[in-house]
Simulated assay, not measured.
Amino acid sequence: MTSNGANGDNLINPADAAEGTLIGWREWVSLPGLGIEYIKAKIDTGARTSALHTFELDVAHEAGVKIARFGVHPYQRDTETVTWCDAPVVDERSVRDSGGHREWRFVIETPVRMANREWPIEITLTARDTMLFRMLVGRTAMRSIRVDPLASFLTGRPPE
């Protein structure tokens, strides 16, 4: 699958890359169902579930369905740009964060677009103010995807 080059770098064989979509440890993704055109995400195979930074999260019942309404700052270090979202709550669960703390979170399902592909994923909603990335893509969201931990933005960058 990989081979060591003369300088010890890992080289990806193009034939192996065709076996599944190859992405880096961080990528720009879109969440079209939430109206988020681009958000930088950390691809985290150690995390089970994906997470999205949200604020002013409110959950209400409409016609017997729980609806989460929340704001998202899609860009790092930018609290001026806001996308307001709403989505049905598909679950509520206890999630252990990277510090080992347990937190009760609402879960939504929405399409993610990455590497010219789109598919539905579950995302937990949480405050990620202190985290470097506004979104984390967990391993349950990775279908036929391979991650090169040494690469970034293999699927491209958003237009300026």
Rank of each mutant, 00 (worst) to 15 (best):
M1I: 10
T2S: 14
S3L: 11
N4E: 14
G5W: 10
G5T: 15
A6Y: 12
A6C: 11
A6R: 15
N7W: 04
G8A: 08
G8P: 02
N10V: 10
A15P: 02
A18W: 06
A18R: 12
A18E: 15
W28Y: 11
S30K: 01
P32I: 07
G33E: 05
G33I: 02
L34I: 10
L34E: 03
G35T: 10
I36E: 00
E37Q: 13
I39K: 00
K42G: 03
I43A: 03
I43S: 02
A47S: 12
A47C: 10
A47M: 09
S50Y: 07
L52P: 00
F55L: 06
L57T: 09
D58W: 05
A60S: 13
H61R: 13
H61Q: 14
E62G: 04
G64R: 06
I67D: 04
I67S: 04
R69C: 04
R69Y: 09
R69I: 02
P74S: 03
D78F: 04
T79P: 02
E80L: 09
T81L: 07
V82R: 13
V82I: 15
V82C: 05
C85F: 06
D86S: 12
A87Q: 05
V89C: 05
V90Q: 02
D91S: 12
E92V: 05
S94L: 15
S94V: 15
S94T: 14
D97R: 03
S98V: 11
G99A: 10
H101V: 07
E103D: 12
E103C: 03
F106R: 06
F106G: 00
V107K: 03
I108L: 06
E109Q: 14
T110I: 08
P111N: 13
V112W: 03
V112E: 03
R113I: 02
R117W: 09
P120L: 09
E122D: 08
E122H: 09
I123E: 00
T124D: 06
A127K: 14
R128D: 06
D129I: 01
T130Y: 09
M131H: 06
L132N: 12
R134S: 02
M135P: 00
M135N: 02
M135A: 13
L136G: 01
V137P: 00
V137F: 05
V137C: 04
G138P: 02
A141M: 05
I145C: 04
R146L: 13
D148Q: 06
P149V: 12
L150R: 14
A151L: 04
A151Y: 01
S152I: 09
F153H: 12
L154W: 03
T155W: 01
R157F: 12
R157D: 14
P158L: 07
P159M: 10
